[in-house]
């Protein structure tokens, strides 16, 4: 890379718009202000929202039915955790995700690999696959409800499909994107087929396949919430919708918090693993 670009990027930590005529303070004070801003500014919006929420509750701006006070929501969340309502329903949800992911994801990976390795397979299967992928989980829902009812198979199918598509796509592209030069190197060194798979194909496809895993699980989580809210009698999505039926907004909010936290934890954990897997290739996004 040309040296100018590097120098420019090195200086990039100062956003241009704010630096034009920055006051010259001693460096240490500037550093402290910077740290304080980084730590405190993110807390402002939540604090303001919380304060407004609390104020609204104490002054009765909106009815408690519509917006229960923060303390009540916290209490409800705590109660639901304590009583096992949350852990029980969450466990059911996670089991659904797991089984759907194991079967749907593995099938997707198998299809992706087969299409990646054999153009013939790709020719036969990809149009149908694309059509299936084009219909979102939401579309499959009413269709599958008519076919299999609203029992456990429905959830399994929806989640399996949500995992199937990204896994197939990413495995396919992972294999397709192995640079031909890698394969040539392998031929030059006369690697056995086994060694070729172990030493070249696997390491090169692992990162994209793992991105597929992350995508699959996040799609599965979204699909799960849809299906549990619309057609279920247990699970974390059902718990949230149930709170709505009883007009207990505190339960709804507690459910949303759990859904958010689980989503966040899953995403953060998988991103970490993904970064680790991709460490050797910093250029990839």
């Amino acid at each position: 890379m040309p040296s100018d670009l590097i120098a420019a990027e090195r200086g990039a930590w100062r956003p241009m718009l704010t630096m034009r005529r920055a006051p010259r303070r001693p460096e240490r004070t500037a550093w402290l202000t910077e740290r304080a801003a980084a730590l405190l500014l993110p807390l402002v919006v939540p604090a303001v929202l919380l304060a407004l929420w609390q104020l609204s509750a104490t002054h009765g701006w909106v009815s408690v039915q519509v917006l229960p006070p923060p303390a009540l929501v916290a209490q409800t969340l705590f109660d639901l955790l304590w009583s096992g309502d949350i852990s029980g329903n969450l466990w059911i949800s996670l089991r659904r995700i797991l089984s759907g992911f194991l079967i749907g994801g593995l099938a997707g990976m198998a299809l992706g690999i087969a299409m990646g390795l054999s153009p013939r397979v790709e020719h036969y299967l990809s149009p149908l696959f694309r059509a299936v992928a084009q219909v979102p989980s939401l579309g499959w829902l009413p269709f599958l409800i008519l076919l299999v009812g609203i029992g456990e198979p429905l959830k399994f199918l929806i989640i399996a499909k949500a995992c199937f598509v990204p896994m197939a796509l990413n495995s396919f592209e992972g294999i397709r994107n192995i640079p031909p030069s890698f394969l040539e190197v392998a031929r030059v060194f006369r690697l056995s087929r086994r060694a070729l798979v172990l030493k070249v194909v696997l390491p090169a496809t692992l990162p994209p396949v793992f991105s597929g895993v992350r995508l699959a699980l996040s799609h599965a989580w979204i699909a799960l919430v849809i299906v549990e809210m619309l057609a279920s009698t247990e699970g974390i999505g059902y718990l949230t919708a149930w709170g709505r039926t009883l007009f207990q907004v505190d339960v709804v909010m507690a459910g949303m918090a759990v859904i958010g936290v689980v989503g966040l934890a899953m995403d953060a954990g998988l991103k970490r693993i993904e970064r680790r897997l991709r460490r050797w290739s910093p250029a990839r996004a």
Binding site: I222, V225, G237, R244, M253, I259, G260, G263, L264
Partner: peptide, 10 residues
């Protein structure tokens, strides 16, 4: 991070 459809009840 809150799955979008979880907003519907609220």
């Amino acid at each position: 991070q809150i799955a979008l459809y979880a907003w519907i009840p609220l």
